[in-house]
Design a protein around this nucleic acid. Structure first.
Length: 267
DNA sequence: ATGTCGTGGACGCCACGA
């Protein structure tokens, strides 16, 4: 299975980039974030024409996640149990079974500033996501969640986590002192998700040593390769990763997203 | 260079989020 994740920063504006990309890369499953579209506004005809079914969880102006698949989409769940809100739950998670794998597309809250209420929301959201994923791992396996690593059905959770897992995942750690995305509590939240039974798939950057997936639009950051790895792919036991890369070509040219897709070959 | 995008409201720019 070829699976990709891509924060498109408006599906409406990105459609002229997305459709040719789908035709070229032919992922079996594509996880989208920041669609910024209500479900009724999703361009389903164009997506279907490209050969994909689509399941969406959107709210209009901000957020919005989706799953595109050409190998089926079953048992779609929008959001998750005990999902925190700000103050109400937002459209930040959708999961479904595609080709025998439970896939999640997630858009983790940004956090804004460490002293912002949004930062606490981000940490709460990640903790609740961990619990929902732990439940999902054991679902259907006939076992309760063990104290250590859960073992159950194959699960892939991917998307914009808005956390750089290590200092090597930002272009200059000194530039991020006092900022979100790099704090210990955020990184601990990722570690707790991994400890529930996942492995972080680190993709090949294709150019340069850093597997960055996001570059700010401003100040020529992409040109200078001043980026961050915040779009992550976590796979459970039972999912074998054959290869993974960041399609930085999709960050180039006219009208790109500020995020590049991550493409993973699974078996 | 807080430098660019995308959104919707009330526009023809602004406030907000990222």
């Amino acid at each position: 299975m070829r699976l990709a994740t891509w924060n498109v920063n408006s599906l409406k504006m990105r459609l002229p980039r997305l459709l040719p990309w789908l035709a070229e890369k032919q992922p079996d499953v594509l996880l989208l974030q920041e669609t910024k579209l209500a479900d009724a506004a999703i361009p389903t005809a164009e997506i279907k024409e490209a050969g994909y079914e689509v399941a969406t969880h959107g709210e209009g102006r901000w957020n919005g996640v989706a799953i595109l698949s050409k190998i089926g989409i079953e048992d779609v769940v929008r959001g998750f149990d005990s999902e925190p809100g700000f103050p109400d739950p937002e459209a930040r998670a959708i999961s479904a079974t595609c080709g025998g794998i439970r896939v999640w597309s997630v858009y983790v809250p940004n956090g804004r500033e460490p002293d912002s209420p949004h930062y606490g929301y981000k940490l709460d959201w990640l903790a609740a996501l961990r619990d929902a994923l732990a439940t999902d791992l054991t679902a259907g396996s006939g076992q309760s969640e063990p104290a250590g690593r859960a073992t159950g059905r194959p699960v892939v959770v991917a998307g914009d986590f808005n956390v750089a897992p290590t200092d090597g995942d930002v272009w200059d750690p000194k530039a991020f002192v006092g900022s979100t995305h790099v704090t210990a509590p955020e990184r601990d939240a990722l570690a707790r998700i991994l400890a529930a039974g996942f492995t972080d798939v680190i993709p090949t950057p294709m150019k340069g040593p850093h597997p960055f997936t996001y570059w700010d639009y401003r100040a020529g950051m992409f040109h200078m390769n001043k980026g961050m790895r915040i779009d992550l792919v976590y796979v459970s036991a039972g999912v074998t990763v054959e290869s993974a890369y960041i399609d930085r070509e999709a960050r180039k040219g006219k009208g790109p997203s500020d995020h590049a897709p991550v493409v993973v070959e699974l078996s």
